[in-house]
Design a protein around this nucleic acid. Structure first.
Lengths: 181, 181
DNA sequence: ACTAGGAGGCTAACACCGTTAGCCACGCCT
DNA sequence: AGGCGTGGCTAACGGTGTTAGCCTCCTAGT
C-alpha cells in the first residue's frame, strides 16, 4: 500500500499518443539512433515536418519515451516491494525489465535527463523501491548503481563470454541485503 | 610486479597520431557527438575528406580513443594494485579517472565495443585490477559493475542534488571488500 | 448562416552530417 | 628520368533535424 498504481500521466493528445506509440515500437526494433523523423513519419502515414505540429523537436519525443520507461520500471518495482519483495526480488525484476526492453532501458538511463520535461516527482517515485527495500538512502543508491552497472554492461555484452552473470547478480543481492532481513 | 608498465601500442603513424590527439582534445572539450569530421579537420589545418587517408571512418577514430581510454584506466588501476592498494583504493582511483575525463569515460564504456579493432588482450588487461583486488571472478564483476554504475550516474547527474556520494562509494567499498582483508 | 481562426497536414528548403570519387602534387626508389 | 605511393584537395551524394510558408478542414462565435 506504499505506492499507488500509476500516478503519472503524460497528458498527450490523441495524435501525440499515436506518435509516441509508433516511436516506442521503432525504438525497440531499431534503437534510438535509427529512430529518425522521416521513417517515424512514414510509419504514421505522414511527413516528417508534420510531427513538429505535435512535438517541438526530436528530444521531446525522447523525453516522452523516457517518461514511459520510468513509469513502466517504477510500476514493476513498486509492485515487487508492495508484495513484500526482497532486495533479490527487486534486482531480479530490474534485470528482467531491462533485458525485455534493452533499447528503452538504455534510452531511459543514458545521459543527463531533462528534469524539466518530466512529470513532477516521476524520477524520484521510480527510484524509491530501492529505498523501500534497503531502508537506507546511501545503501539504496549503492544498490541502484550496482543494478544499473550490471544491466548496462550485460546489455552491451561487456562481460567476458561465458560469464555466469546469475552468480554475479546473486553476489550483489547478498552484499546489499540489509542486516536485519 | 604483476602488470608491466604499458604493454599496448596502437601503432599509429605520425599523422594518425596527430589526428587522434586532436580528437582526444575535442572529445573532452565538446563530447563525442560534437566531434565531427569537418571541425576535427579544421583543428588540424586540413579538410575532412583527407582524414579518410588515415582512418577508414569515424568509428575507427572512436576505436583509437577507446583504446587510449582503456590503456589509461588500466595503467592507473594496475599501479594501484601493484602498490598494494585495497578495494577502496581501486574504487577511488576509478572514480577520479572518470571525473577527470568524463567524456572519455563515457565513450570508453558506452555501447558494445568492437573487440576486433582493439589491441589483443587490452580489454581483459584493463579489467584485471578488479580481479586482483578481490581474488574472485564474480566478486570482481560485481565490484566493477558497481563502480561503473556509480560513475555513470554521477557523471550524468542522476543522483538527487545534495547526495553525499562519498558515503555511497564508501558503502560499496565496504560491501565488496573480501572477508580476509 | 457566415465567418474567423486554429489545428494539422503538405512541399521546399537550409545547414550540417559521414562519406566517396576523382584529381593533383610531392618525394622516393628503381 | 620515370613510376608510384602518400596525402592533400574540391565536388558531390544521400541522410539528418528543422523551419518557413502554404493550404484545407473543422469548429466556435456572432
Amino acid at each position: 500500500m506504499t505506492g499507488s498504481p500509476a500516478p503519472f500521466d503524460l497528458g498527450l493528445a490523441a495524435r501525440a499518443r499515436q506518435i509516441v506509440d509508433a516511436a516506442m515500437a521503432m525504438l525497440e526494433e531499431m534503437g534510438w539512433p535509427a529512430l529518425t523523423m522521416r521513417p517515424l513519419a512514414d510509419r504514421l502515414g505522414m511527413r516528417a515536418p508534420s510531427i513538429y505540429k505535435h512535438f517541438a523537436n526530436r528530444d521531446q519525443i525522447k523525453a516522452a519515451l523516457v517518461a514511459e520507461g520510468l513509469i513502466e520500471m517504477g510500476q514493476l518495482l513498486h509492485a515487487v516491494v508492495d508484495t513484500g519483495g526482497s532486495v533479490r526480488d527487486v534486482l531480479s525484476a530490474y534485470r528482467a525489465a531491462g533485458l525485455r526492453s534493452p533499447n528503452l532501458y538504455r534510452l531511459t538511463t543514458f545521459g543527463s535527463l531533462d528534469r524539466a520535461t518530466l512529470p513532477d516527482g516521476l524520477e524520484e517515485w521510480s527510484g524509491t523501491p530501492f529505498y523501500l527495500v534497503t531502508g537506507d538512502e546511501h545503501l539504496a543508491q549503492a544498490l541502484w548503481s550496482f543494478a544499473h552497472g550490471m544491466l548496462t554492461l550485460e546489455l552491451d555484452g561487456r562481460y567476458p563470454p561465458g560469464s555466469h552473470l546469475d552468480r554475479t547478480w546473486e553476489i550483489g543481492a547478498a552484499r546489499f541485503t540489509p542486516a536485519g532481513a
